Amino acid sequence: MGYESYQQLGVDVADGVATLTLRSGQKFNAVTWQMHHELGLIFDDLTRDPDVRVIVLTGAGDAFCAGADLNWLRNQLQDPPTPREAREAGRAIVLGILDCPKPVIARVNGDAIGLGASLALLSDIVIAVDTCKFADPHVRIGLVAGDGGALIWPLLIGYARAKEYLLTGNAVPAADAVRMGLVNHAVPAGELDATVQRYARQLADGATMAIQFTKTSTNIPLRQAVESVLEASLAYESMTLRSQDAQEGVASFLERRKPNFVGR
């Protein structure tokens, strides 16, 4: 299969392993409209590719993904997507990862923030550089953690811990993320590639049908959660995109000042 149509995702397939690289061109691989659109398509294409048995998801350079590009988000505030558009776009990405039968390994080579954190945490195995952090700070700019955060964090670390981080937007250092079960491994930068390749090679050389059906079976509760939690959280996020607090949150971030939220 050819992946030339993808502008902000790089795909390199070698010996059964597809390396999927986030490369928006924005600082810290922040998500643009184009990347968001492409993320909703790429996992279906990788599923259909007979040469791919394992997917490694990573970021270009020294960054993984900083979440939504704030300028794109500001444009959304001026012209918010309809609830249907927001629902379909959000579901396409989350279900793309969950419904892809091929194992997805997140190679987290830098901070994973917002949607970046969701992309990593929805993956099947998460291997992070030990200097990175994970956070979903939607609330800090007046938005609901609707694009996967409210779905996956509680299922990984329990509701008490998840609510602490989702309601504050505080970051979790990689070592703490391992201890609480948010991610699988945190390793020094010099060991990241070897660790990722060890798992990728084991999965690519394993019993493909057994591995894929095991992933599909294990993800059944996640798929069920999508139909309840994700549907609601995307709808609520769509509502907050129309709020004064979201306008203030994005403006204050771009202007590097403390926000003045009014609850509307």
Rank of each mutant, 00 (worst) to 15 (best):
L166Q: 05
G116V: 03
A177E: 03
R107W: 10
V17F: 02
Q8T: 14
G40D: 08
P101W: 09
N184C: 14
L230C: 09
M239A: 12
I93R: 04
G114E: 05
Q26P: 07
D111S: 09
V229W: 01
Y3E: 08
R91E: 14
Q202R: 15
L46P: 02
V94C: 08
R74S: 14
P188E: 10
G169V: 02
V54M: 04
F64R: 00
V108N: 04
V56C: 09
G61V: 11
T168P: 03
A177N: 05
V250M: 05
G40Y: 07
T168Y: 10
V126M: 11
A246W: 00
I152E: 00
D193K: 13
N170W: 11
L143F: 01
N75I: 04
G149E: 02
A30E: 05
L166I: 12
L77M: 08
S233Y: 00
Q26W: 05
P101L: 10
P83H: 06
G249M: 03
D12R: 14
V52S: 03
I152W: 00
Q212C: 13
M180F: 03
A117T: 05
C65I: 06
A60S: 15
V126W: 00
P173E: 09
E248T: 07
P103W: 04
V196N: 06
V262G: 10
A89V: 09
